[in-house]
Amino acid sequence: MVVEKPSLETVWGWLHAVPDPEIPVISLTDLGIIRDVQWQDDTLEVTVTPTYSGCPATTIINLDIETALRGHGIEKLALKRQLSPAWTSDWMTDAGRAKLESYGIAPPQPAGGPERCPRCKSTQLEKISQFGSTPCKAQWRCTDCLEPFDYFKCI
């Protein structure tokens, strides 16, 4: 029996629809943690890189990928972990950055701090803490509208 394998493009499309478990407004592909998708004979091999080595979302992410792909009929699946090159926030897509900001999280900036308040867009900002609600975020505050907000750290 000949089984038609879905194209890699189709698989990327499916993965694009899998949300990040901690920040569901962006998808795993927006985050840039899916590094490769390949067919090895009849096994689909998906290479994933962790954002932070201790991020508890990592196991959930693998589970979500597996659930999504199995839901699309993929039977033979292998998830590979890749550490090098290490994930960088530069791999986040522009669409992902825009979605983060409209969700209220300032996207990562090469300058090392947020560009503007995600709510009122003021550039008058102060750092509250280098760490935030998840390993990937820091806490900042807008000194104009006085709202504290999460900043997605640049690493």
């Binding site: 932070y52 080595s53 201790g54 509250i128 803490s129 280098q130 760490f131 935030g132 609600s133 390993p135």
Partner: peptide
Amino acid sequence: EEDIALANTALDLIGQ
């Protein structure tokens, strides 16, 4: 803030 910072540092170290 320090509580969160310490917990996050611990998390990174345990991940490593």
